[in-house]
Design a protein around this nucleic acid. Structure first.
Lengths: 344, 344
DNA sequence: CTGTTAGCGCATTCAG
DNA sequence: CTGAATGCGCTAACAG
């Protein structure tokens, strides 16, 4: 009778013995790193199933210097929209799984988290969200020589790959769309002040895209930062409509405001879209589920997250050079835009 | 001249040599698993710093059978509020770090994720969110003999630890509070139909708590499920006020409705709180940031998440038996409740 | 209080 | 196409 261990889980040695082959053969069946005859493969695979074998990730990692884990650094700031964050996270995790990678979650207030997981070789690569223009973490990451991708565009990527939605292009597209409808007084209802102050790159780039496009269209830009609550929205609309009575269009880059924007506009005596047209830069899910669907330039969180993981994998497997990738904006017309009323 | 490797990172052997001690001494300085004289400790520590040593997690895991990683299974369903999910996630990750654990993120649609990370020994324990009454994953988890904690209360925990906010108690408290104010017609505006249909335990328990408390107070209960959008809210309020004109109080267990509830109530000709009092069961952050703060029974996501991790650690380190833990509800009065108007 | 050493489970040369 | 043997870096007996 074989001396079979009863308590501990099966190892590659058990499988080899059960299949009547060597451990290296078992290993190569799993990795596919060398040709295996059909017969032995089948023998090995059935042995693995019989023993419910599954390789210890730590042993594999030690021997191969790969953990098959990706790190993901997520923001925990009060000024970022959790819905959007969750979409990115979902996209990254889902895509990572298609590459047989798991995802280790790091929060950005975990100072030293990046250094820790890289120097301990816990991760093979990193994706970092919510990048600021002059983000100190970029330097840390760049010094670490692990494949890394930033979701966002810092002033100096320091040789790291970056991917993001083209927020500047989105703002430009919004202005162009409204301008084509005859609007000349356009206000930009943007990210929370906190996001702008810390120069979150999506906030900066959207605002700059707006300002530059206005300038090239001879439109005098109006912009106001706004937190995602009704108190702040009331203030913002007050300031817009009191100082700029003639505003006929709004570009809203703040998904948190959408549920309450309609109500507040009517409280300001503006009906939608007759008095003010609104284009929003937001995830399709929130902009489309409204009673009256918004004209929206969708933030493609899924695409961006997927691209981020693909880019990490490219740099790992193929040692590709760093790249910058921007996802182009697309405008979907809803019921919140129409031609501008003739000036009085 | 010493033959020092230039490219590869320092190992425990390098540190031992640099410090003039054995590798086990270095290991024990790190783990604290046996007494080390102050002098040698300092020598070793300075050697570690000089060499920028940090242990390879895979090697440590292989030798010690611990990964120092916790798995966290998060929901990706459309009917759960992402804000609440993020709060739980934040709490779990933050607390895990205080135990020197990292967190591996699993999505619940990743079928087999639980089996995979446990059988590969990627995690030392698991926390699973968004439990359903008869959740098939509970069985999978229970069969895995890793410490695990459920955030939620399944019908049969199968020997696993559970922790959650006392949603039933919260609903009871809400009814009691309103009843004490003289309200006899109370409607429960609850979770989305999808949450109830799949018997997400928070949805079930809140609703049952409401029904039972009404019954014991001789109040005839009115309850309606509602998705977190204005279309659904309009329907819900229509059904409440058309069929039950005399309703004077609402219990809202659906954070997504709060930003738009006030507006919709006034559209139904009800002013807040004169005509209808509202108690909401929601995270304090969303209920408190309103222009008119809600009377709220706070969902303490941070506490629950922290407790979950602590319970996993207890079961790991101390081999404690499974436990069920409910976090007690606390009601904070806002400006949305007042005594019921005398019946006409 | 410290040193020596045998594994942990797998990947991967080197031989055949 | 397959097997044998070495080493990945660390922990934890065991031995002083």
């Amino acid at each position: 009778m074989k001396n079979r261990k009863t308590s501990t889980a099966a190892t590659i040695i058990d499988v080899a013995r059960e299949a009547g082959v060597s451990t290296s053969t078992v290993s190569y069946v799993m990795s596919g790193n060398r040709p295996i005859s059909k017969e032995t493969r089948e023998v090995v695979e059935s042995a693995m199933q019989r023993l419910r074998y599954s390789p210890r990730s730590s042993a594999r990692a030690l021997a191969s210097s790969r953990s098959d884990v990706l790190g993901l650094v997520v923001p925990l700031r009060a000024d970022v929209n959790v819905g959007v964050v969750m979409q990115f996270v979902t996209a990254v995790v889902t895509t990572a799984r298609t590459f047989d990678k798991d995802v280790l979650l790091l929060t950005q207030d975990d100072a030293g988290g990046i250094s820790r997981v890289t120097s301990q070789s816990m991760v093979d690569g990193l994706v970092m969200m919510d990048i600021e223009a002059n983000d100190p973490r970029v330097e840390v990451l760049a010094a670490r020589d692990k494949p890394a991708v930033l979701i966002g565009m810092p002033d100096d990527p320091r040789g790291l790959s970056c991917v993001d939605f083209d927020f500047a292009g989105a703002a430009r597209l919004a202005v162009q769309h409204l301008a084509a409808l005859g609007h000349r007084r356009i206000a930009f209802l943007g990210s929370p002040p906190a996001s702008l102050q810390r120069h979150a790159t999506y906030a900066d780039r959207a605002l700059n895209g707006f300002l530059e496009t206005c300038s090239s269209h001879g439109i005098s830009p109006i912009s106001v930062a706004c937190e995602a609550n009704s108190r702040s929205l009331v203030q913002a609309l007050d300031s817009i409509f009191s100082e700029h009575e003639a505003v006929t269009a709004l570009i809203v880059h703040n998904e948190g405001l959408l549920p309450i924007l309609g109500e507040n506009l009517s409280q300001h005596g503006r009906s939608l879209p007759e008095d003010v047209s609104v284009v929003t830069i937001a995830p399709l899910e929130v902009a489309g589920s409204a009673v009256r669907p918004w004209t929206v330039i969708a933030i493609p969180a899924m695409e961006v997250g997927r691209a981020a993981v693909e880019m990490v994998m490219d740099r790992m497997d193929l040692a590709k050079p760093a790249e910058l990738r921007l996802i182009a904006p697309v405008l979907t017309e809803g019921e919140t835009t129409c031609v501008a009323a003739p000036q009085g």
